[in-house]
Design a protein around this nucleic acid. Structure first.
Lengths: 143, 143
DNA sequence: CTAAGTGCAAAATGTTTGCATACTT
DNA sequence: AAGTATGCAAACATTTTGCACTTAG
């Protein structure tokens, strides 16, 4: 186990603050660590990893994969930002990430839950595929 | 670029053969490399990585993430095994992987394609969440 | 012969760990 | 004082790379 989040420290404040301020972004551990080393009170890489682990276990931060085979992303979980209202779509070609908001998602959730007994966590789930623009480019190329 | 698959070599035969024979499994680069080193003609780790890259680029092999933050999986793409007929569900608790086969999936595909212009690749997409059994265990615990 | 493929060992990533030191409570 | 958290450097795991050598065509 990696600490229990019992003590309040300057480092943890900085880390949590940064993640909170960027709750709309997909942060990587590495990115956070980079940012932290240029702070008033620099925070070491290991502390960042350890505290992220604590936050994930405590359910304050969500951890998931966006880039195939790449490192994980972290995101602060707030009330407004449960991400339960949208799925992520990642284009395998241009690598752009799309947030998709749509009633269909509720249906997926309900269906999978009722018929298959699986409780989907949409905030962690990423659809891979080809986006509209890339699709078009691919079709144009074929001609 | 990592070669172009122009020459036929013993090593590539071995690698492709192995992936083909295990088209129903989720192979890791590491696993393939391990297996290869005990072959009649051992194949080096770098060759495995390089050839996998070629195969992925040529569209014969699919590459995707199953474990959060863990290494990638590779799978041979054959006619019977397009995996377009099912999605993968990964339980974040017990880490089991489920293959789910269901007409709902076609609806998701069609909807996302028509309404959002995104062509989903279900073979690469993994739903994360909690499976039936774990859900039950969690509920029992709460009492 | 030439382009392509291989193996090795070294480097590059991203993440984890042990341990001595420092901080919170 | 006791229990936690931190920083460092070293260890890991996975993947990539440079380069000399081999092989397929």
């Amino acid at each position: 186990m990696n600490g229990q989040g019992k003590y309040k420290t300057k480092q943890r404040d900085l880390i949590l603050g940064y993640i909170e301020r960027n709750k709309d972004k997909h942060l990587t551990a590495d990115g956070i660590a980079d940012y932290m080393k240029n702070q008033e009170k620099p925070v070491s890489r290991s502390t960042v990893y350890r505290y992220l682990d604590v936050l994930v276990n405590e359910g304050h931060v969500r951890k998931y994969v966006i880039e195939e085979g790449k490192c994980c992303c972290y995101q602060y979980i707030s009330k407004e930002n449960t991400c339960s209202n949208h799925y992520h779509f990642k284009c395998s070609r241009c690598m752009k990430l799309f947030h998709m908001d749509c009633e269909m998602l509720d249906k997926i959730y309900a269906h999978v839950k009722e018929e298959h007994g699986f409780t989907v966590d949409n905030s962690k789930t990423v659809f891979y595929g080809i986006c509209r623009d890339c699709q078009k480019e691919l079709e144009d190329k074929d001609r």
